[in-house]
Design a protein around this nucleic acid. Sequence first.
DNA 1: CACAAGTGATTGCGCACGCAACTGTTATGC
DNA 2: GCATAACAGTTGCGTGCGCAATCACTTGTG
Lengths: 176, 176
Amino acid sequence: MAIHPSPISPLPAPADLGPLGEQEGSVCGASDWERLSDHESAAWEGFLQAHAEIQVELEHELQAAHQLSFSDYFALLALDKAERGSLRMHDLAKPVRLTRSGLTRLVERLERIGLIERAPCPDDARGTEARITEAGRALVHAASATHLAGVRRRFLARFSPAELQLLAEQFGRLAG
Amino acid sequence: MAIHPSPISPLPAPADLGPLGEQEGSVCGASDWERLSDHESAAWEGFLQAHAEIQVELEHELQAAHQLSFSDYFALLALDKAERGSLRMHDLAKPVRLTRSGLTRLVERLERIGLIERAPCPDDARGTEARITEAGRALVHAASATHLAGVRRRFLARFSPAELQLLAEQFGRLAG
DNA sequence: CACAAGTGATTGCGCACGCAACTGTTATGC
DNA sequence: GCATAACAGTTGCGTGCGCAATCACTTGTG
């Protein structure tokens, strides 16, 4: 349990029914109102399952071929695509999907192995810029080849172009 | 880097091109053959993004309302659905998507707070059975209400029944 | 210009989890 | 029937990461 020690529920906490809580004295088993239809649960569980499988497979692949985790890869990728190959920590956090503290550690590791460098931000002395090195660029390009091939094989290749277009739109609906 | 200390690559390692590796002496930037089309990348990135967002939101919701992590929830759910409310560790590992060692720790925690119990397996002295308690059942039923409402709101409600059916089939293609 | 409030990044701490090694038990081959 | 292999589960250890507190700097506001 616990995402963390979690002092007190930060959210409104939609009524913990407490032990034995259930709406009515339903004799046994889960009540129906909370169940999913077959299509619903197949879609949802398929979504979770597909993601989980693909994720671990691709991550192992990347790890085996280039000793890079997904976080490493996404960080390098974001920097590679960025103007001048550098980004402030704050702006790097979002694409890598890490908190600022997690990112600090990540960048520290990547710096230690020479894939990125850190420099104080020129216009704002609070900030730090992470810049990708040549070694970092070379590695992320090689890694991209591996990774994208994996993405094609495990995901893209299973759909027609029209399906992909529809999926893109559908996933877009789920965002933000 | 590193999913772990990772002694030696377990996979065949599809040719690490080494530093500066790239097919040709392309002057700069990534070569085109490894790029994704707009629809492709929108679909793939949308998939990752949607999953990440929904996942953290639902997990926080579950945590806030019932102090349960996803792992906890899935373990309890699997046990609740199981014959006699009990499963061997080995069989519980798959639905929870944890390694055996991770599961040992998880079960230990859930036992400590009285949501499940452990007993030696009657017919196989190597095995251990985890059985959900009444408190565990009550909690997982309450948690289901919260969780499924979240799934509806964040996922199911964004699609028509026909879309859900198609999605279920499509995600099924990605499995195994 | 000083002093609060806001913001970027880092650090202390704790925790969940994977891997590899180990213990104990059940199947196999000779 | 004993040795060896396969298997279930646990444990030592290391690691990545989130939260909360903290430091450093910047930007209001009087």
